[in-house]
Write a protein that binds this DNA or RNA. Structure first.
Length: 452
RNA sequence: GGCGACGUGGCCGAGUGGCUUAGGCAAGGGCCUGCAAAGCCCUGUACAUGGGUUCGAUUCCCAUCGUCGCCUCCA
């Protein structure tokens, strides 16, 4: 069974399921105000790998991931560009899913939108106000963090420590708050801002109440796993938990956070990589699977550097996998080598040790190639099936042999004929032509194979 | 100031108190091939610095240096 590091307890522990065989996961999705950057890519890929592995393991996964389509950033951009805020959110959401498709991230099972859950949020905030956990001021409604048992669970800091020194940042709504750490649940609208009715006046949701009502609403109390990037740990996730706790409801039972994407200097990076500034650029320039491979070869909690060299190296390693697939295409179906699959499971179950799993994958490819070189097809077939299983389990799409046009096959035949006649100049010329047309040409003693 | 992470061979990136000291990419040598390609085999002896613990540390402890993250709206 899968064991995962839990941010709340700071331990790798079993990912328990409320209902055996079915897992409920909430992933904090994007605020749609711009194109998805490299950081978004890491987060979505990490959880896509998790999801695919769970499904591969036979578990029924319900993955809820929100679209936050109302937020200060969206309003800012709308104002700056003189556009309707909803124009920004619908376009950005489309771009988001196009990018996700590009990196082969499966669509979540549920994609709730914040704006569709405003009534539930208002209701929740009302409950919090009437219980005394929240209070209204002249600019909104705030949650009293002191009323929340264990505030700081995810930050791993007491309220006092968090306040000590602190940053020099401006504290939102500072004037009327009972405690500087109290945070907005509802923000009253200024003229011209998008607004929804509420008992406290027209306004919009504050600190990600949508995640609270949508996760509890769709997954129910005590859902299995809540995940997102390291930067959401505090205050975003802390504040979600605080709202749920203040409601007296049981929130996520396990918390998972992925590490950052960093640049060459080791600084948190989300925006740029030379001419690649977002995910859509990245899949234009590199093998769309390359980012996934880079991430698979590092651990999800470590910071990972994304560089042109790294993506290219990953692309070359994928090319090796592709040629393996081509080489083994003719092998019949076989039971995946049990020992290999067991070792793969053991690695993945240990806090998603994908680097170890990838080491195993490449070792298995090498063994299968050796078996093939030695003519032992039955061993090769079992190992090949294991390779396919492992790739499938982590969402690595291997390029299948595409149909080769008749004229290309004819050229390959001509190449072999020229070789048989020892007319190597002709043979080399044909090969050069095929390569120029973008074909991978492999001339073996059994004949020439051509693939993309 | 508080809390936390990290510093590994040409590059990326795992891991471990000693044993065959991951894996990928790149490099060199070899096998195969008419030549390539693909594949296979071999090679490189790395763990920031200074102490300490230990029979033995890259791995544990302490210190130092350096890098980075979070501390109110960034995955």
């Amino acid at each position: 069974m899968l064991h995962l590091y839990d941010t709340a307890t700071r331990q790798v522990r079993e990912l328990a399921m409320r209902e055996p065989g079915r897992i409920s996961i909430y992933l904090c999705g994007p605020t749609v105000y711009g194109p998805p950057h490299l950081g978004h890519g890491r987060a979505t890929l990490v959880y896509d790998i998790l999801r695919r592995y769970l499904e591969w393991s036979g578990i029924d996964v319900r993955l809820v991931s929100n679209i936050t389509d109302i937020d200060d950033k969206i309003i800012d951009r709308a104002e700056r560009e003189g556009r309707e805020w909803s124009d920004i959110t619908t376009k950005c959401e489309n771009i988001w899913f196009r990018a996700m498709e590009g990196i082969d991230v499966l669509r979540p099972t549920d994609v709730p939108h914040a704006t569709e859950w405003v009534d539930e949020m208002v209701e929740m905030i009302s409950t919090l106000v009437s219980s005394g956990a929240a209070y209204a001021t002249s600019d909104g409604v705030y949650l009293s963090v002191e009323s929340v048992e264990g505030y700081g669970l995810l930050a791993h800091q007491s309220l006092d420590d968090m306040m000590a020194g602190g940053g020099e940042r401006e504290v939102f709504g500072a004037g009327e708050k009972r405690h500087p750490a109290d945070f907005a649940l509802w923000k009253l609208a200024k003229p011209g801002e998008p607004a929804w009715e509420s008992p406290w006046g027209a306004g919009r949701p504050g600190w990600h109440s949508e995640c609270v009502v949508m996760s509890l609403g769709l997954l129910g109390d005590g859902f299995d796993l809540h995940c997102g990037g390291q930067d959401l740990r505090f205050p975003h996730h802390e504040n979600e938990r605080a709202q749920a706790v203040a409601l007296g409801r049981e929130f996520a039972r396990h918390w998972m956070h992925n590490g950052f994407v960093v640049d060459a200097e080791g600084e948190k990076m989300s925006k740029s990589l030379g001419n690649v500034s977002n995910l859509l650029d990245l899949i234009e320039v590199y093998d769309p699977r390359a980012y996934r491979m880079v991430l698979l070869q590092s651990h999800y909690r470590s910071p990972v550097g994304i560089s042109a060299d790294g993506l290219e190296a990953a692309g070359r390693s994928l090319a090796g996998l592709d040629s393996f697939v081509a080489r083994t295409a003719s092998l019949g179906e076989a039971e995946a080598d049990a020992e290999t699959v067991a070792a793969f499971r053991a690695a993945m179950d240990d806090d998603l040790d994908t680097p170890k799993a990838m080491a195993l994958l490449f070792d298995t490819v090498r063994q299968a190639n050796s078996a093939l070189d030695g003519g032992d097809e039955s061993i090769a077939a079992g190992l090949t099936s294991a390779v396919r299983e492992m790739c499938g389990a982590v969402g690595l799409r291997l390029v299948e042999q595409v149909a080769v046009p008749a004229d290309v096959l004819a050229q390959a035949g001509a190449l072999d004929a020229a070789r048989a006649a020892k007319d190597y100049d002709t043979a080399d010329a044909i090969r050069a032509d095929l390569q120029a047309a973008g074909w991978q040409v492999e001339t073996t003693r059994d004949g020439t194979t051509v693939r993309r």
